[in-house]
Amino acid sequence: MTQGRLISLEGGEGTGKSTQAKALANALEINGHKVWLTREPGGTPGAETIRELLLTGSEEKWNIRTEALLFAAARAEHCAKLIRPALSRGEWVITDRFIDSSRAYQSVNGQLDDAEIKDLHRVGSNNLMPDRTFILDLPEAVASRRAAARDRGDSDRIGGRDSAYHQAVMAKFRQFAVDEPDRVRLVDASQTAEAITEMLLQNLSDLMS
């Protein structure tokens, strides 16, 4: 059986992850792959319930450690119920966010470090890592404008955090690409949508054999 692959798309708010996840899934299906398109937090009924808890309400709703635990719980359910079964059948999974979002978003305030978040992932999801991660990179001002147009003034409790927070998150993402170049690829998201999709496909050619 052909090996299944897990591909994650990461980046800040408004960088086009959802658009590229859909385009990539379509392109892989045309090439004959069975593809699951999913997202985090979410992807399964239980994880979608946790998503609603995480993304709605006031900023003060959750302590940062509680927030990290909820993200880890949603991911554990996602991996157990959708991702691992699909991979075991030789299918591809394209997910809009995965563990690197937790690493970036939950560590920037200094209350949790990267090792602690990885520990949660090891316990909850048996340390499942993507075969390839694409980080869509845009200047924060451009990404912020796109996110504002998308949300129309109704951003979720994490997307609505201030500019300094989102700049720090993006800096974390960029560092992952430096530290883990075999898995993580930084993508210039200022190109046309079609050019970005083509670049993603080119950077998956080594996984398609």
Rank of each mutant, 00 (worst) to 15 (best):
A21Q: 01
I83M: 13
D114H: 03
S102D: 03
P85Q: 08
D151G: 11
V142F: 10
A189L: 12
D131P: 02
F98L: 10
H78C: 14
L70C: 15
K81F: 08
G57T: 11
A23R: 06
T44A: 05
P45G: 03
D162P: 14
L186F: 07
P181I: 03
Q175G: 07
E40Y: 02
D96I: 02
T197Q: 12
G12Y: 02
R75I: 14
M208E: 05
L207I: 11
F134H: 04
E140D: 12
R157W: 12
G90A: 08
V187K: 13
E116A: 10
Q202R: 09
T56L: 12
S125E: 07
R185Q: 15
R51I: 03
L87G: 08
M129C: 07
N63M: 13
K118R: 12
Q3P: 12
A147Q: 11
G110S: 03
P41T: 00
L186R: 09
S125C: 07
S125W: 00
L112N: 02
V184Q: 06
V123G: 01
D179R: 07
K81D: 12
T56D: 09
R84I: 09
L53C: 13
M208Q: 06
A72E: 14
A143R: 07
P45Q: 03
V169T: 10
N31D: 03
T197R: 08
D179T: 09
E180Y: 07
L186C: 04
M129F: 02
L55T: 06
I117W: 01
I30Y: 04
E40H: 01
S107Y: 00
G11P: 04
V142D: 12
V142Q: 13
E140W: 09
E180V: 10
L24F: 04
G90T: 06
R75K: 11
K22A: 04
A141I: 08
L9T: 12
S88M: 11
K118L: 06
W36I: 10
G110D: 02
L120P: 00
V187S: 05
Y165H: 08
E60I: 13
R103G: 03
Q191S: 06
P139Y: 07
R185A: 13
K17Y: 03
R103D: 01
L70S: 13
P130I: 06
M129S: 06
L136N: 01
